[in-house]
Design a protein around this nucleic acid. Structure first.
Lengths: 139, 139
DNA sequence: GTTTTAAATGAAACATTGTTTCAATAAAAA
DNA sequence: TTTTTATTGAAACAATGTTTCATTTAAAAC
């Protein structure tokens, strides 16, 4: 789906910054950090606008935010680009490689339901696994 | 276990900052943010020393770090204060309340084993659940 | 109990990440 | 083409975390 169509579907204005941001993620094989996206967006990158747009796109359901650790946030396109916020039912596990640092959306590894103690209500659940990825583990 | 004995077991020097840090956590019912601990530690708190000591105590296996979101880190004592690093086998789920903001170590809710795609090796797994806690959900 | 030694502390300065306000600009509707 | 409203980018700020280095302190040696 073209960046401009994604924005159309989500009723967001088609600005150059947003188009560049989506394009940067579409061209990436893995979830990207702000710094990685900055390189890909070149002159379309402005720090302040970036923060506002990742927020807007996350709220709209276009992208999701992956907190790798307290210093590292990465961004990835949602699997179904047209879904609105809170329609992102298919929640997957995230993986971060301790060797190469790459982050993976393990689309086929669903998050399991946790039975919590009485009185606790689940609204969201994030699973962050760290270890060695398929490219690094064989070494 | 007394703070001084905890440090003894882990072969760490008994400094006032460390004793105050451990005491602050022992007096807390819930995992605490740096700011909350700062209040409890009063004049024993120094920002730089605090960062160095949470690192040292985490490495030693005295405390663990909970990344609630990219802006919020909380700290809690490990359940078995005497365990060394990487002996923390009993990994539990963390819960954050969207209403009161409190964080809970759900000691009885174990993290499940995830079957990852071929080639992916798990070393650590963090589960962060957000929703409404037992104190807030009834409202 | 005193001296020695190695680790821990705290000040200063810096780095990174993220936010707020506000005037200028650009997208989309009229 | 004009009008309206959201978006942008500059400036300034705020929070979180790190590095270097001289000083201090804990614990070991004497």
């Amino acid at each position: 789906m073209k960046p401009t169509d994604i924005l159309q579907v989500h009723e967001l204005k088609k600005t150059n910054s947003r188009l560049a941001l989506i394009k940067a993620l579409q061209e990436s094989t893995f979830p990207q950090s702000e710094n990685e996206m900055k390189s890909r967006m070149s002159d379309q990158y402005d720090r302040i606008t970036f923060y506002r747009n990742v927020q807007a796109l996350e709220d709209a359901g276009v992208i999701h935010r992956i907190v790798v650790d307290s210093h590292t946030v990465k961004y990835a396109l949602n699997c179904c680009e047209t879904e609105k916020k809170h329609q992102h039912i298919h929640k997957h596990v995230h993986f971060n490689c301790k060797s190469c640092g790459k982050t993976f959306c393990l689309e086929n590894t669903d998050i399991q339901q946790y039975r919590l103690p009485a009185g606790f209500q689940t609204e969201e659940c994030e699973v962050m696994i760290k270890g060695y990825c398929k490219f690094c583990s064989q070494k």
